[in-house]
Design a binder for these strands. Structure first.
Length: 276
DNA sequence: TCCCAGGAAGGCT
DNA sequence: AGCCTTCATGGG
C-alpha cells in the first residue's frame, strides 16, 4: 500500500475524462474505489479526505504507476498559464481539476483508439472489455484478490479469425486491429523505437503511415501512450467547441508544451457537462 | 427511421 | 491540397 497527498489529482475525474477505457468504479470488500487495467497490470486505488491510496508495493509504484498517473508534473502551473480572457477554457479547466494525462500501455492505447474511430465511449469500453475477457488472461490482483483480465497480447489478437473478429463487434475496424496486431508481432511496427527515440513530428508520421491510423488517432496514441503533451487531438467534440467558441481555430500556440492537457480539459468539459 | 459516435480510406477534382 | 462517399455497429 502506498499512501500519498497529491494535489490536482482526482481518480473520479480521470476515470470519466475519456482517455482511459478500463478504469471503473468498484469496491474492494466494502471500500469504494477504482480498479484499473493497463496492459497486463492492474491496480486498485481510492481517495478519502485528501489522501490517495494506491494498493500496490512501493516498488510497483515507482516502476510503473507513478509515471502512469503523471505525478511529477505540476498541473496547477498549467492551469495558471491559461489566457485569463479565455473564459470558456478557464471554466473547462476548473471543471476538470484533478485530471491527469495518463501514460498508458502503448499496445493497448493503439488498439483502443483504432476501435474509437467513428464510435462512442460506452461502446468502445464494451468492446475493449470483451476483447480482454475473451482473449486476455484471467488473473488475480495481488494486493486485493480482485479478478480481472489482462489486455490481449499482439499474438493473441493476431490469431483471431474472421468469425471471432465479427463476434467482437469491431465492424469495419476489424481489419485495422488484425493488421496492427500482426505487424507488432512480426516487429514491422517497432514499439521500442517509438517509445525511446522519436520526436513528436516523426512519431506522427510513423503512426499515420499505419493502416487505420489518421491524424486524430495518432495524436491520441502520442498523448495517452507516449506522453507527448504537445499534441492536440481534434475529434468531433473538439471540432464543435472550436466552431462554437473559437471561430474555427483554436490558439494552440499559446499552450505549446501542454496543448494536450488543454485539449483534455476541453474534451472533458464538452462530453461530461454537455456545454457545447 | 434517421442520426450520431474521441475518423479514416479511397476516389475524385 | 481539399471535398465526397463509404465503411459496421449499436444506442438515442
Amino acid at each position: 500500500m502506498v499512501e500519498a497527498t497529491i494535489k490536482n489529482f482526482d481518480l473520479k475525474q480521470i476515470a470519466e475524462s475519456g482517455q482511459i477505457f478500463r478504469m471503473k468504479e468498484t469496491t474492494f470488500g466494502t471500500t469504494p474505489g477504482y480498479f484499473i487495467g493497463s496492459g497486463s497490470r492492474s491496480l486498485f486505488a481510492r481517495q478519502e479526505d485528501g489522501q490517495t491510496f494506491f494498493y500496490c508495493t512501493g516498488e510497483e509504484m515507482k516502476e510503473y504507476w507513478f509515471e502512469f498517473f503523471d505525478l511529477d508534473l505540476d498541473y496547477e502551473f498549467i492551469a495558471k498559464s491559461i489566457d485569463p480572457e479565455d473564459f470558456y477554457l478557464k471554466h473547462a479547466a476548473a471543471a476538470g481539476e484533478g485530471i491527469r494525462i495518463l501514460k498508458q500501455d502503448l499496445f493497448e492505447v493503439c488498439i483502443s483508439f483504432l476501435i474509437s474511430q467513428n464510435n462512442n465511449i460506452p461502446r468502445i469500453k464494451k468492446t475493449i472489455y470483451y476483447l480482454c475477457e475473451h482473449y486476455g488472461r484471467e488473473e488475480i490482483n495481488a494486493e486485493t484478490g480482485i479478478r480481472f483480465y489482462t489486455f490481449p497480447t499482439p499474438e493473441a489478437l493476431a490469431r483471431l479469425d474472421d468469425t471471432e473478429l465479427k463476434a467482437a463487434g469491431l465492424g469495419y475496424r476489424a481489419r485495422y486491429i488484425s493488421e496492427f496486431a500482426k505487424n507488432v508481432e512480426n516487429e514491422r511496427i517497432n514499439f521500442f523505437d517509438l517509445e525511446n527515440y522519436y520526436a513528436p513530428d516523426l512519431t506522427h508520421r510513423y503512426l499515420t503511415a499505419i493502416l487505420g491510423i489518421g491524424d486524430k488517432v495518432a495524436n491520441c496514441i502520442q498523448l495517452f501512450g507516449l506522453h507527448q503533451l504537445t499534441v492536440f487531438p481534434i475529434d468531433t467534440w473538439i471540432n464543435k467547441i472550436i466552431d462554437t467558441y473559437y471561430g474555427g481555430r483554436f490558439p494552440i500556440e499559446k499552450y505549446g508544451l501542454y496543448a494536450g492537457v488543454i485539449q483534455q480539459y476541453l474534451f472533458n468539459y464538452a462530453v461530461n457537462r454537455k456545454e457545447v
